[in-house]
Design a protein around this nucleic acid. Sequence first.
RNA 1: GCGGGAGUAGCUCAGUUGGUAGAGCAUCAGCCUUCCAAGCUGAGGGUCGCGGGUUCGAGUCUCGUCUCCCGCUCCA
Length: 516
Amino acid sequence: MTQEDLFKKLIAHCKEYGFVFQSSEIYDGLSAVYDYAQNGVELKNNIRQYWWDSMTRLHDNIVGLDSAIFMHPKVWVASGHVGSFNDPLIDNKDSKKRYRADVLIEDWIAKQEEKINKEVKKAKKRFGDDFDEKVFLETNKRVLDVSEKISTVNSRMVKALEDNNLADVKKLIEDCDIACPISGTKNWTDVRQFNLMFETKMGSVSDDANSIYLRPETAQGIFVNYLNVQKTGRMKLPFGIAQIGKAFRNEIVARQFIFRMREFEQMEMQYFVRPGEEQKWFEFWKEKRMNWHKALGLGDEKYRFHEHDKLAHYANAAFDIEFKFPFGFKEVEGIHSRTNFDLSQHQEHSGKKLQYFDPESKESYVPYVVETSIGLDRTFLLVLAAAYTEEKITKDDGTEDERIVLRLPPALAPVKLAVFPLTKKDGLPEKARQIMDDLKIDFNCQYEEKDSIGKRYRRHDAIGTPFCITIDHQTIEDNTVTIRHRDTMEQERVDAAKLMEIMEEKVSLKKLLRSI
RNA sequence: GCGGGAGUAGCUCAGUUGGUAGAGCAUCAGCCUUCCAAGCUGAGGGUCGCGGGUUCGAGUCUCGUCUCCCGCUCCA
């Protein structure tokens, strides 16, 4: 089976077994938006819980936060999202290729600068040791013409982008005589703005309503609250704030199922450190986070680090943790050294001091930040992709059979335990109900009595239930039940009174958390 | 936005030169009472993506439109 087929089957499986549905399906669906169904929501909650507990409970200097999705519009100016989350795009009508208008102009400027360099080189050759580059640049007419043109174009572009004057951006492209690299023609569409942030109106109708954004990342909610948390929690550096929540990005194209969605959920932790110690903590979190992933036991070889060669405006170091999805190695989590960029920006834009008084050094400073940012939906997808297995089994009569089983880590499985009476008679259902009632408060259990026992096992294999308990006639006599294991299909007979203890050991998060 | 593919039952699909909408699986009820799916009987479920046109008659022909999937553009 090819990886592409596997991915298609996985998506179909998600629908068939109630993990993920497309949003608004009865209205033909909404692109790149998905709903988590009855089993999906349980799996997602379990992943969320695993992250939350590992961050907050295992680190006594990390606390949680749940900030609002709406934030003051100035937050996004300070963070740089208003400026850099906007893409002016233009299409060439002949080649049908789409470009970022500002990139086209920047390329043009780079070309002009190359021209100057050529002139300089030529002159150097001609004049030898007598060549004074500074004088040459200031006096040569050809060079002066070009550099003047560059600065005019550049300042016009900056202004046009600032003023959101898209017509002038287009005119600039025309004035510079820029042609499409593919078609070679200058047959351009108008420049259109693509803002990756969702915008909405806050306040009563029309006039006095202000534009606000749906947050494109959860991190800013932590930054603007950092001093509140530090003071009320009496936190000392280094300390962290963890948050799980929805973020929204209006991607031009969002695809690959739940891998890239317009509405998605992030699990972020911002770790505040002393300036100069950020590298140490960056390394620390890189290792911690990788261990968290590997503790799930999905296969160490499916993970790798990827270092960013192009750093974002806020970072001085950045690594991704990538997972081998059916469509290749892709980012699941980012570990970024964000410097003091965000806090400094907020300090500047808000006019409020965001400094930390260090009782040891008796100094005040803006802390540096190391961030771990993981996509909950992507983690969900990777867990499912790693768990989905089609396996051949040989039946007792020698014929071949196939079963589909989700080999989920037991602690993450939507249903921990299925309880089956072997038959619907002889008081077995009543006994099964009774056993389940003892367990259902601690574990998500499901009771099933319809269809043959084998069919019920298979149904639970398909949703990843790690254990099935079967109540038979012997149970009535001696209170023992059989536990059937999902992965091996083997059974063992145990005392029903010990079920609670056995399950606690096998399916609770505790074991997983201890293994990190 | 461009190019390609696809929309018929919950799922996978069939549907003849245009003639009243089908199968398997799944679901539900009953029978069977069984430790690894597919035993028997019966039932429910479809504005054939949506809208116009041609026609006595359209799932089928035609025009338009919408949506989804894949590729490209984009992804701080």
